[in-house]
Simulated assay, not measured.
Amino acid sequence: MNPYVLAILLSSLGLGTTLTFASSHWLLAWMGLEINTLAITPLMAQQHHPRAVEATTKYFLTQATAAAMILFAATTNAWATGQWDINNLAHPLASAMTITALALKIGLAPMHFWLPEVLQGLDLLTGLILSTWQKLAPFALIIQVAPLIDPTILTMLGLLSTLIGGWGGLNQTQIRKILAYSSIAHMGWMIIILQYSPQLTLLALSLYILMTSTAFLSMKMASATKINTLTMMWSKTPILASTTALALLSLGGLPPLTGFMPKWLILQEMANQELPLTATIMAMAALLSLYFYLRLCYAMTLTISPNTTNASTPWRTQTTQSTLMTALSTTAALGLLPITPAILMLIT
């Protein structure tokens, strides 16, 4: 892609998200979401492959549907209350439609069906943008309207997303689909704690973006899109295989890695809110997600390809890709658990 066009598209992504962040009016927030959608569409279709075009079409139709629902909900609320302020979502129909549309925007279950299919048709870098940056603007709106939403709806969305994100990834062989179901499960953890502690939602979102960036950048460096291609990873780049396996375990929430921090704090907060059954279901659903992360780790570190030669010094591949972002995100995704007390002091 032409670097000038790429710069315009990336700056439009930033503009759309910033506009939604800064808006208190539904029309401005909607405009920011639309700029985001229109900016990422050419990035998704740049490969000119039928699978990429199909994914782009599915994404555009889904996002257009969600945007139309948001606009309709805002109009209904303005008709009933006379105000367009985001914080004045008083009409029950408007609030239900708004949370449904925003759940569709970020891929929360049961509005998640588009996400694995779309992510499967994209290259890894565009998939990284879709899984991280594109969730920021809808999440800003969700956090603002959450106090006005029925808590039962948020709890059901969180539980369903965590369970479906765990179950859906079990029988997948495509890494991008596994990361899509991982995204659905992590969104569930963020939504379920939103009504009790929005600071924990922001913490979980930040660490999710960090760990998912590590996973996508590592897979991009290894040129891996399927589980069976991971079996060559140990022979080619053993250090990358080790750090990627640890990053996936961090996504699964195993101590002493960074990913344990949000799950630990969320379960602790749910116990403080006297929700033991919900916390137990969430903890059990995390084990489902952990299983498919362990499948990837097993393929990377405990198996070797039958085509590998039995030489004493395995061949190595030289990469021309920049490794700085991968190294920084990997370090953060593996080693931030010791600063949990400091983070607790900041968010409480």
Score class of each variant (00 low, 15 high):
Val5Phe: 13
Ser11Asn: 13
Leu13Gln: 12
Gly14Ala: 03
Gly14Glu: 14
Leu19Thr: 14
Phe21Gln: 07
Trp26His: 14
Leu27Arg: 13
Ala29Asn: 15
Ala29Thr: 12
Glu34Asn: 10
Ile35His: 03
Asn36Leu: 11
Ala39Arg: 02
Ala39Pro: 01
Pro42Gln: 01
Leu43Gln: 05
His48Met: 02
His49Asn: 13
Arg51Pro: 00
Ala52Val: 03
Ala52Asp: 05
Ala52His: 05
Ala55Ser: 08
Lys58Glu: 00
Thr62Asp: 00
Ala68Leu: 14
Met69Thr: 06
Ala74Thr: 10
Ala74Tyr: 12
Thr75Asn: 07
Asn77Lys: 09
Trp84Arg: 04
Ile86Lys: 01
Asn87Thr: 09
Asn88Thr: 08
Ala90Leu: 07
Ala103Asp: 11
Leu104Lys: 04
Lys105Val: 04
Leu108Pro: 02
Pro110Asp: 13
Met111Tyr: 09
Gly121Cys: 11
Leu125Gly: 02
Ile129Trp: 06
Leu130Arg: 09
Trp133Leu: 15
Trp133Met: 07
Pro138His: 07
Ala140His: 07
Ala140Glu: 08
Ala140Thr: 14
Leu141Gln: 12
Ile142Ala: 14
Ala146Phe: 06
Leu148Phe: 09
Leu148Ile: 00
Ile149Tyr: 08
Pro151Ser: 04
Leu154Val: 04
Leu154Asn: 05
Trp167Leu: 15
Gly169Pro: 04
Gly169Trp: 02
Asn171Ala: 12
Asn171Lys: 10
Asn171Ser: 12
Ile175Gly: 00
Ser182Phe: 09
Gly188Asp: 03
Trp189Glu: 09
Pro198Thr: 07
Leu200Lys: 14
Ala204Lys: 11
Ala204Cys: 14
Ser206His: 06
Leu207Arg: 07
Ile209Ala: 10
Leu217Gln: 03
Ser218Tyr: 07
Met219Thr: 10
Ala222Thr: 13
Ser223Gln: 10
Met232Trp: 13
Ser235Leu: 04
Thr237Leu: 09
Thr237Gly: 03
Pro238Met: 06
Leu246Gly: 02
Leu246Val: 06
Leu265Pro: 10
Gln273Phe: 05
Glu274Met: 13
Leu277Asp: 01
Thr278His: 12
Ile281Lys: 00
Ala283Asn: 07
Ala285Thr: 15
Ala285Gln: 04
Ser289Ala: 08
Phe292Asp: 03
Tyr293Cys: 11
Arg295Ser: 03
Cys297Asp: 02
Ala299Asn: 05
Thr303Gly: 00
Ser305Val: 03
Asn310Met: 15
Ser312Lys: 06
Pro314Tyr: 06
Thr323Ala: 05
Met325Thr: 11
Thr331Ser: 07
Thr331Arg: 06
Thr331Leu: 13
Thr331Tyr: 09
Ala333Val: 01
Leu336Phe: 10
Ile339Met: 08
Thr340Trp: 12
Ile347Trp: 08
